[in-house]
Design a binder for these strands. Sequence first.
DNA 1: GCAAAAGTGTTGACTGTACACCCATGT
DNA 2: ACATGGGTGTACAGTCAACACTTTTGC
Lengths: 243, 243
Amino acid sequence: MARSFAPEREDTSLGHGDTSVTVDVVLLTIRNGKLSVLLVKRAMEPFGGHWALPGGFVRHGESLGDAARRELRDKTGVDRLPGGMHLEQLKTYGDPERDPRGRVVSVSYLGLGPDISVPSDASAETRFWSWDELQAPDASPLAFDHKRILTDAVERARAKLEYAPVASAFVDEPFTLADLRRIYEAVWGVSLDAPNFRRKVLSTPDFVTAVGETAAPSGGGRPAELYRRGSATLLHPAMLRPA
Amino acid sequence: MARSFAPEREDTSLGHGDTSVTVDVVLLTIRNGKLSVLLVKRAMEPFGGHWALPGGFVRHGESLGDAARRELRDKTGVDRLPGGMHLEQLKTYGDPERDPRGRVVSVSYLGLGPDISVPSDASAETRFWSWDELQAPDASPLAFDHKRILTDAVERARAKLEYAPVASAFVDEPFTLADLRRIYEAVWGVSLDAPNFRRKVLSTPDFVTAVGETAAPSGGGRPAELYRRGSATLLHPAMLRPA
DNA sequence: GCAAAAGTGTTGACTGTACACCCATGT
DNA sequence: ACATGGGTGTACAGTCAACACTTTTGC
């Protein structure tokens, strides 16, 4: 064992400064009952004309989470992100070949939020795409390794709905249990039994809290009771998706 | 909306090159029945004399995973990592203040492996610490934000044992179900009912595969049947920890 | 009244847990 | 024989999915 045990980290120099760090954000929402993601059309090379995840370089003195929130603000045009919005770190992608310009390490974030309209003056360059149309065989390929990041993000979102109350991040308050159920159905791509769904949600402590009022009826059918997000951060028991 | 929608990323320059990227590895093992983690004593500033996670700068042309595996090899002195060894990306820490030398973004990895002996010529600088002793109020603080990373890693490991067959990464093959049960007990800090544990494991498809032989009896008691890791990557149903 | 959506009740299958009991070995 | 750890059986309680049924609205 003639290997050195002095870690490089202990060097007082900071090593190679030729690495860039970016954040890329996968903003998911439910639009017309379908799971959708915000993409930006790239104007310049590389991958000019390709659609990409919103993202950019992390600035000096800026935390990674702050960079992700800034990118989201800039790309959606929404200054104050919706209150129930969920944003969490997803994964970091650092393959040496992932960006032709050089070494770029990208920290990706997963965002879940209600359906918002992106600014009309940028509608051609920034818009939501449904997950289904991006999955089509003839869909245009995304820039960089963003297809991979998007796939990982959707898988994480699907799993997270089981054990965390993040589905409510997709809806505005107050909401009905049918609203919430449609979120689960859209993200998981299944249909759920409404009565059983109701019991599961209400029996999970602090998942939702009843408002005590009912929604305005919408063209036939009994008006639904209204709820707000509860204080739970983890779901016990979990909302397991059907096999 | 007078905000610019031209993403910075589309600049052909690569932005700020004054950011360094490191990997830090949380290598967990079970030693003397206790969950333990490999730490390295720092020789230089900052945090000279403090214990830290093994880690270092990512090299040119090296993927993040490769850097993590290299760090592990260098610090453990083990050239070929054990076959069942599990290594996965954990989370990226990029607070601007986390390293006094400048902007350092650290991609952390979680490693789970069997109990190995670190090289004796480095025993003073590199050794395993039990989770319990690091939790003690009078424990010496770790370098940088490594306490936080370690806490996140243990929480991830505890959760991952529920839905992935990673417990078998801690044991050498072939192993008995009692070996496997002791892993769960050590990581979760609980005691499990042996008969029910057996049924759960065996009823989960491809979690383990029977060898067909029995272990040499060890001082009294019926010899246990031997197993190897199965082909499953996800556990259906999950091995839920007791409430 | 009829359709539609919300909400309640009920049943039968399945799962998890506790624990009694039997098996195979060392001393 | 007895202690020790491995392995099987069983019975009870809790959970979950399926679906019949009632409630409240619009037309």
